[in-house]
Design a protein around this nucleic acid. Structure first.
Ligand code: MN
Ligand code: MN
Ligand code: MN
Ligand code: MN
Lengths: 222, 222
DNA sequence: TTATTTTGTTAGTATCGTCTAACTTATTAC
DNA sequence: GTAATAAGTTAGACGATACTAACAAAATAA
């Protein structure tokens, strides 16, 4: 009863609203590369279906039902990404576009099987949390690497957003999730950081890169 | 440039035409449970695209291009079924409906990876041949079990057509591909057969079942 | 505060994929 | 060989998902 297309709108709305709680027609339009009038009428349709709160000229919100549905699609997306990396040998930069399609498959047993074969993972290959089967998602308390200061030692937990180019760059620098990063230096002029990790000493990362790396500071809580 | 929907029509047309070389609007209509006028206009569209040969009131044929495209979709379907059974642990009766969706995924690397992980299989879990990457399909020379005679010893090679109910029945009788079947008896009244295989002695199979089991008679050629 | 720009909405159009009703052609039965 | 039936086609409709053009409201700049 909910189409492939509607699912993509819901998912984008979920991601956009997870920051400020609301999103605009314009945001969605840019994100999906679909013109505003199309988005507008889709939002009305989703409101009809009880998945979106729509009021003229006001920002959009998801209803509880809409949020749950979106989370379940994201669950399928992230389980798929994890499966592709862990069980099929794809690189973390290759899996998003495949998962973008597979997330729409209607076959609960398929995703349950993945979950089981993966040992019920909590995060996807980019460090984003996988919602549970009820659509509940764990909230992490990571911070941006760019918000850390010289002398900090932190653990690399997630890439967000995780563009293909960025993921390739990180791979080329042997930067993978779970590494301890020691912040050696911060260049005040451009915000670039010099860090050490694994076997690498004093690697330079631009502030744009640092903005997209999420880290946990100490207290590696279970 | 070819939609999910069009792909399903092509595939059905491929299967229907593989018997007599042609198929009717009515056949397709029944197979897909879509009304004849809809099928009719879709056939015209596919003819426009050069995939189908359409002439008013004449039976339908695939063009070479249409046949190749259909074979490539069937390739994705059958690789998926094999992957689901061999790598994910699904039963052979569970995989068709999942593959029916996954066959439409546009990601060549995904299916190449499956193929590789499976060791380039030649047949799907039901014994049907998997077309190669150019859309060429190996022709088997199997015969129906129901066309064999008492005293024959044959090898069980494929189930066709392979309905879920039939596959479940075969599983319940421990009948799996590759088994040697010894035909002990044929009941002239209803065509039912009594056969022995594996640890089973004198199992009775209805003629309807025997019609759907394909076997190779001797000369197990490579 | 007024003017300009950006954002959101309405109206009208198009294509895809489905339907029903009505008509035409082909096949089958008598 | 005609009558009845089945199969195929045409016409017209509809919902889904997109678009452009034109207009309205809100936000921003002057
Ligand atoms: Mn992703
Ligand atoms: Mn998607
Ligand atoms: Mn199948
Ligand atoms: Mn399909």
């Amino acid at each position: 009863m909910i189409s492939h297309t509607e699912e993509n709108y819901l998912k984008v709305l979920y991601n956009l609203t997870s920051l400020k709680g609301e999103a605009t027609v314009n945001d969605i339009s840019k994100q999906l590369d679909i013109k505003m009038p199309t988005v507008n009428s889709m939002m009305k349709r989703l409101a009809e279906k009880g998945l979106v709160v729509y009021e003229s000229y006001k920002p959009l919100k998801l209803t509880d039902e809409g949020r749950k549905l979106a989370a379940l699609i994201i669950r399928k997306h992230r389980l798929t990404e994890m499966y592709l990396v862990e069980k099929m040998g794809f690189g973390w930069e290759q899996v998003h576009s495949i998962a973008e399609q597979i997330e729409h498959i209607q076959a609960p047993e398929f995703f349950e099987k993945m979950d089981e074969l993966l040992g019920f993972p909590k995060v996807d290959p980019h460090g984003s949390p996988i919602p549970d089967a009820n659509g509940n998602i764990a909230s992490d308390n990571y911070v941006k690497l760019s918000d850390c200061k010289v002398g900090d030692t932190v653990t690399f937990m997630a890439v967000q957003p995780s563009s293909e180019d960025l993921l390739k760059f990180l791979t080329s620098r042997d930067l993978s999730l779970g590494l301890e990063l020691k912040i050696k230096q911060l260049e005040p002029f451009d915000g670039s950081m010099t860090i050490s990790y694994g076997k690498k000493e004093n690697e330079m990362l631009s502030s744009k890169v640092c903005d997209n790396l999420l880290v946990s500071k100490k207290s590696k809580k279970k």
